[in-house]
């Protein structure tokens, strides 16, 4: 069985994000990047499936982006992925175009399962997985917090606003990971060193005969401003008084 894991390269979530002067993007100089946290969870899950399976499982990670992307793909290799593919694309990507390129990758790699993040924490779109499943006409299970292989396919616990929903999807399928699916492993030093020597396959996205069709155009970005001015209260009497008389919320 082959599992395809699409991963995105995003700014480290602990970093302060600044907007470029032209307002069209963020300042990337010196910004450390990581694998999108949800995608790292997807990689981890794929590795666990391989480790616990009696059948042979191949874990293939794919990233779409520019040259800079290599280091995060190497991190996935160091975690234990069997292969990594970089689809070279220097144009602006939105979830629609990510999904279209991934559709081509699926046709090329023919995985049984696409396991990806529910959301990239830079655009916070939460769309590419659903788009991909629609394009492929495959079943989907988004926001997965538990996976279990069953005769009919995969039983997935999904984290929804109203509670944990359980569905069974036939394979092949697209599954998107939620935070509680697992805790991704850290790559050990020897495996990091070994991953350095592995080759990363490269494909220019034009080879698929696709042209980027922009769907979401960012006109302007602004850093959120914080207008609150915290009043430090001395005790609960003062707190309650202010909530009652000043803020009038209780």
């Amino acid at each position: 069985m082959k599992i395809l894991v699409p991963t995105k390269r995003v700014p480290d979530t602990d970093q302060k994000i600044r907007v470029r002067d032209d307002g069209k993007g963020i300042v990337e100089d010196d910004l450390p990047f990581v694998i999108n946290p949800f995608d790292a969870i997807a990689v981890e899950e794929a590795l666990r499936i391989r480790e616990n399976s009696s059948e042979e499982v191949e874990v293939v990670v794919v990233g779409i982006g520019s040259d800079d992307y290599e280091s995060e793909l190497r991190t996935s290799l160091a975690m234990g992925a069997d292969r990594a593919i970089l689809v070279e694309c220097s144009e602006e990507l939105d979830p629609w175009n990510v999904a279209r390129i991934l559709q081509e990758m699926v046709q090329r790699e023919k995985p049984k399962l696409v396991l990806m993040g529910k959301q990239a924490v830079d655009d916070d779109a939460n769309q590419a997985g659903q788009f991909l499943a629609a394009l492929l006409d495959w079943p989907q299970a988004t926001f997965a917090s538990k996976l279990e292989f069953v005769e009919q396919g995969l039983r997935v616990s999904r984290e929804t606003d109203v509670g944990i929903e359980v569905v069974v999807v036939g394979l092949p399928a697209v599954v998107t990971s939620d935070l509680r699916l697992n805790e991704p492993r850290y790559a050990s030093l020897p495996s990091i060193l070994k991953a350095r020597k592995k080759t990363i396959e490269r494909i220019a996205f034009e080879q698929f005969g696709l042209a980027i069709e922009p769907r979401i155009q960012v006109l302007q970005m602004e850093v959120g401003t914080n207008t609150r001015n915290c009043i430090r209260v001395n005790d609960i009497d003062e707190l309650l008084e202010r909530l009652r008389d000043e803020a009038k919320v209780i």
């Binding site: 939105d94 779109a125 939460n126 769309q127 629609a134 926001f143 984290e159």
Partner: peptide, 23 residues
Amino acid sequence: STTYAKDILGRAGGLLGGAMASE
């Protein structure tokens, strides 16, 4: 923008050409 809509409308968005903004 709930998990229901992200799941279902997201997929509908994929069927309808992908011009979608969330949240």
